[in-house]
Simulated assay, not measured.
Amino acid sequence: MPENKVLSQLTNEELNKKKKQSIGVMISFGVVMFIAIVVLVYLSFKTKSTLFQVLQLPYFVCLYRFM
C-alpha cells in the first residue's frame, strides 16, 4: 500500500487522477440527491400532503429507532 503523500509532493498525473475521482464522487452524490428529491416530491403529491410533512417522516423513524 503506498504511503500518503503531502499534496505538494504529488505529480501532475496523480493530481489529475485525484481530481477525476473527486469529480466522479461529487457527480454520483448529486445524482443520488436528485433522485431522493424527485422521490420526496412524488410522495408529497401522491399523498396530497406538503413536502414538509413528507420530510418529517424519516425524522420520527430515526427518533423511534434510538428510543
Rank of each mutant, 00 (worst) to 15 (best):
T50V: 12
M1F: 04
G30C: 06
G30V: 03
A36V: 11
P58Y: 04
F34M: 07
S44A: 10
M33D: 15
V31N: 14
L40Y: 09
C62K: 10
I27T: 15
I35G: 13
V54M: 04
R65S: 04
I37K: 11
E13G: 02
C62S: 10
V41E: 11
E3W: 07
V32T: 11
K48H: 08
G24W: 00
S8F: 13
L55N: 02
V25W: 14
R65L: 10
P2R: 14
A36Y: 08
V41G: 03
Q21N: 10
V41Y: 06
N12G: 04
K46G: 10
E14A: 00
L55H: 00
F45M: 10
K20I: 01
L10S: 01
M67F: 07
V6I: 01
N4D: 11
K19V: 06
S44P: 01
K19D: 05
S49F: 04
Q56D: 08
E14M: 02
L51Y: 11
Q9M: 15
K17I: 00
K48D: 13
V61M: 04
F60S: 07
L63D: 03
L10A: 01
Q56Y: 07
L10E: 05
L10Q: 05
V31K: 13
L57V: 04
Q21P: 00
M33K: 15
F52W: 02
Y42N: 07
I35Y: 11
V31R: 09
F60D: 06
V6Q: 14
R65G: 00
L43Q: 03
R65D: 12
K5C: 04
V61S: 00
G24I: 03
V6L: 04
E13R: 06
A36H: 07
P58L: 02
K17D: 05
S8P: 06
K46Y: 04
